[in-house]
Nucleic acid binder design. Structure first.
Lengths: 330, 330
DNA sequence: TTAAATTGTGTAAACGGTTACGCTATTTAA
DNA sequence: TTAAATAGCGTAACCGTTTACACAATTTAA
């Protein structure tokens, strides 16, 4: 292995200055008592001579690290996970402001016991000051539960408040409702819902919003699945005139296929996506979408974690509103 | 602060088992001598009773951590940084395979001395086993240099081999050449290059590839800048019939504006982007682009880092080929 | 001016592991 | 069967900090 980095230890350094290690330590820690004159002198000398407190020794005595881990079920799909990307952006920015660093830990959606063990080990061996857990997979819940059980600050991000931890959550059902209602209000007559895999909440919300029956097509969440869904839809209900898709990538794949086959969007077919990932607005026509405010989601999770980290016991969970962003596609 | 996690120390645990701490340590470390029978017993008991070696103590004696940091100049632009996202994906996947964890550290492009100091501190206080540094900013170079100087494994990713560290690099100029040549071969007559900010290499490559004069428009790298560039171009050289853009987002913004103003792509105007970020293929028409093989870039950097981490002294830098991916826009 | 309170510093014991060294068993060689 | 080699384990020093406690110097109160 690699044993690089500073060979200058606090003992050596203190000796050079003619002080004790305690004083040096105090100069860096801003806890204990120390005259500002000596602190100045020590910090200055440290800068000159390149002394830096070894972080592992610090973590050991302090009994905590200051890194935060983000666990998320990895989408090994055909596209990068834009959903994750945008949440992570919010998380990381906020974390930097808190002077904390982010470790990222993807895990398989159907994680093996082995993989889970590795992560639980990391969690319990003191690696993290706290964790953020994305999603609602078995893995996510296990991690959240372990964290709670061992009193490690943890906040979950998902489509429902997590009983195992503090959480910030979004309400898929109410989002889908907006889309349904919009289609009703704009007098669309034959709605369809392109589900990735079944998501009862979105489906129900959409149906309730539209206040009428809705054709369901399922299959998967990728760009390619969107195109397939279009083909199936044209066979099974060719007079469909409005569509909600379970996520934006699906919607974009769907639109692409629709346009290539000669459909006019939004005239023949109005399309609304879900999540409002950034690339949605790039498409031509620009995609309308239910926004989950992904960036804010990340930000809020860090806010809650921040409170937990500074010792608060009861921090309320939060939810974020879904909104319908109208662009060209609907 | 938070002093959670395992209160069961090696001393307590060893006592419970009636062995010495040395033996327990050996059971976990697979170095020293130990009978497989006792190891079994210890590991099993550990699992039962929930003993886990504290990572900070381990790191302290071992004099190294096993986390890898990725430093990158943060694009505080109007879009998420897809370029980064895809490289990071490659890095993280490979790193997981090496049982290492990734910390991500964005820094400002024009980072202040203060910010730089923080990062140098992190670098030199033993936080990382090694680092990967993205880009060619002053900050990136400083970090790479510090790492090299302190013998911390470091690999840079950028548009040219980095003298301060091992690196994996791409050749912008040769990529742009391909685009120029393609436009020449397809008998386009009035080329333009939409530079974000000036990038002499791409510009030169493009001109050489086309073997003729090229109109330059600059301004910035965002979607919005793409649209602005289109407008300026229409004023300054309205008969342009082919365009290379300095990145894909720019290209997409450009195309969107062009289409909205009635241009037919690729008939009236052929467009090629740069980087081949994933969303390029979603656009309508799908965007042709010079691919940098971003994912592979990330993978290779970890490969090199892996060698460095396992003690190799001289590991050759690598470069990746640029390729022209043709889609509908050209 | 003197006692009490406060401030600044040092000594040494943790923190929770690893590992060099030494001492028995046990195995192998002769 | 015996000497030499080796395998398995324990003791204790060490990794580089922090911090409780003790003590001297200085300030404040009376």
């Amino acid at each position: 292995m690699n044993k690089y980095y500073n060979r200058l230890t606090i003992t050596d350094f203190a000796e050079m200055l003619g002080t004790s290690t305690a004083t040096v330590s105090r100069a860096f820690s801003d806890k204990g008592r120390i005259s500002s004159k000596t602190r100045q002198r020590i910090l200055q000398k440290a800068a000159e001579m390149g002394y830096r407190p070894n972080i592992h020794a610090r973590n050991l005595t302090a009994r905590h690290s200051d890194t935060v881990a983000l666990f998320y079920p990895e989408l090994r799909g055909e596209e990068p996970d834009y959903f994750l990307t945008e949440i992570m952006l919010g998380i990381n920015r906020s974390l930097v402001a808190l002077q904390r660093t982010l470790q990222i830990h993807p895990f398989e959606r159907n994680s093996t016991a082995d993989e889970m063990n590795r992560y639980v080990d990391l969690l319990l061996n003191g690696s993290f000051a706290g964790i953020i857990v994305l999603g609602e997979t078995v893995g996510s819940r296990t991690l959240a539960e372990m964290a709670r059980h061992n009193q490690i600050p943890c906040v979950g991000i998902g489509p429902a408040p997590a009983p195992e931890s503090n959480s910030v959550w979004y309400n898929n059902s109410s989002g889908a409702f907006l889309a349904g209602k919009y289609f009703r209000d704009t007098r669309r007559e034959r709605p369809a819902y392109i589900a990735g895999f079944t998501d009862a909440n979105k489906e129900r919300g959409f149906r309730d919003g539209y206040a009428g029956e809705v054709k369901i097509i399922d299959g998967g969440y990728s760009f390619r699945h969107g195109a397939l869904a279009f083909e199936r839809l044209m066979k099974e209900q060719p007079d469909t005139d409005c569509v909600l898709c379970a996520n934006d990538i699906l919607a974009i794949g769907f639109m692409k296929a629709a346009i290539d086959s000669g459909k006019k969007i939004p005239q023949d077919l109005a399309v609304i996506g879900f999540d409002d990932i950034h690339p949605a607005r790039f498409f031509n026509p620009a995609l309308s979408s239910i926004t989950l405010h992904l960036y804010d989601l990340g930000e809020k999770s860090v806010q809650i974690l921040g409170h937990l980290l500074s010792g608060a016991r009861e921090v309320p969970s939060e939810s974020v509103e879904c909104d319908l962003i109208l662009r060209q596609s609907s």
